[in-house]
């Protein structure tokens, strides 16, 4: 049982219908395209990508806040994609989510105590309506995230961004989930607050053994928190692998470009490693390019890249990569010839 993944996502595809007005024809936007991955118990999988990569859509589809067009999501043996209504609500305690914007994720008209207690109340875990016991539980939850009883009878507007994110985390751990989806949970925060929240999350993970699906665009943060990393581009996963391998010797040209685009926090070294940045931007998912989605920006693009979508192949050091350079291109000592691995930041 325990060697089976906690979360198993297979061929997940999410589409949005756009337009469909009187004069605009309906168009289909494929935001997530045949994505597969798994999260083991107690593990942190980071899904990394730029805007338009589909990473937040993956999070919402896993949470069943969106209906996937195809694919399955299994959590702890339950096929989430086959559940709905009461059956779906019954498994919700196993997976919880923390959202990016701590300003809009808390209902401004509710007291903190009620916000944190809500999951317990809706799942009938408020211990037979004993208000004092519920209060104690809420207080314990707030203490676990570094807040306390003094904060219970206050409103969200009285808290800073970091504190609000603590409240959102208290709400998410109230039901003792096995998987927590963190959708850019620290990217709206200032540097100093961001680290407080990251440490809190790491602390909670070691204490409770929950797993994290960590959605982020910030490679610096991911490098510190992730066990495994999946890099997304235009709705597909282009590379996965253990964090050490991704940050040590990544295999996909896009991963390389991402890593070298993050400025190093040292002026001498940053100025020494500067080179021509990757040209262009993510193409529109409404008009995805043929073949490999990255070929238009790829410095190593070959003919085959324009024609065929590369399949995932295994990489030394763990994980896989979807790139023709692995199978078709010139290779030297087991590595694609043209790929100069950047120094890890």
């Amino acid at each position: 049982m325990s060697d089976r993944p906690l979360l198993e996502v297979r061929d997940l595809t999410v589409q949005f219908q756009l337009g469909g007005g009187l004069f605009a024809p309906k168009r289909t936007l494929t935001a997530v395209n045949g994505v597969s991955f798994e999260v083991m118990r107690g593990e942190t999988l980071a899904i990394v990508g730029e805007s338009g990569s589909g990473k937040s859509t993956i999070a919402r589809a896993v949470m069943r806040l969106l209906e996937p067009a195809a694919g399955t999501v299994h959590l702890d043996g339950d096929n989430l994609t086959a559940l709905s209504g009461a059956a779906l609500r019954a498994v919700r305690p196993k997976l919880q989510m923390v959202f990016q914007d701590p300003y809009s994720s808390l209902d401004p008209s509710k007291l903190i105590a009620d916000i944190v207690a809500e999951p317990l109340v809706v799942h009938g875990r408020a211990r037979g309506g004993d208000a004092a016991a519920l209060d104690r539980t809420v207080q314990t939850l707030l203490e676990q995230v570094g807040l306390g009883a003094v904060h219970m009878n206050r409103y969200p507007y009285e808290f800073s961004g970091g504190q609000r994110q603590r409240i959102a985390i208290a709400r998410a751990i109230a039901l003792e989930p096995k998987l927590m989806v963190l959708d850019e949970a620290v990217s709206a925060l200032d540097v100093s607050t961001q680290n407080q929240i990251l440490n809190l999350l790491e602390d909670l993970r070691t204490r409770t053994g929950m797993a994290y699906l960590f959605i982020s665009h910030d490679l610096g943060v991911v490098q510190h928190v992730a066990d495994r990393v999946a890099i997304t581009y235009l709705g597909r996963i282009v590379e996965t692998g253990p964090a050490a391998r991704i940050f040590g010797s990544c295999a996909h040209p896009y991963t390389q470009a991402l890593l070298s685009a993050v400025p190093e926090p040292n002026p001498r070294r940053q100025r020494a490693r500067r080179h021509q940045p990757l040209a262009g931007e993510i193409p529109s998912p409404l008009a995805p390019p043929s073949g490999c989605p990255f070929h238009a920006r790829c410095p190593h693009a070959m003919d085959v890249c324009r024609r065929e979508m590369p399949a995932h192949t295994a990489v030394d050091g763990g994980g896989s990569v979807a790139c023709h350079l692995q199978t078709e291109g010139p290779r030297l000592a087991g590595k694609p010839l043209a790929a100069d691995t950047p120094t890890p930041p």
């Binding site: 806040l65 959202f99 809009s104 994720s105 808390l106 209902d107 809500e118 999951p119 809706v122």
Partner: peptide
């Protein structure tokens, strides 16, 4: 469209709630 409505949904609240 506020995130707190999405958050309530993710907790497992019914639409009526």
């Amino acid at each position: 469209q506020e995130t707190y409505v999405e958050a309530a949904q993710s907790i497992g609240c019914t639409r009526g709630w």
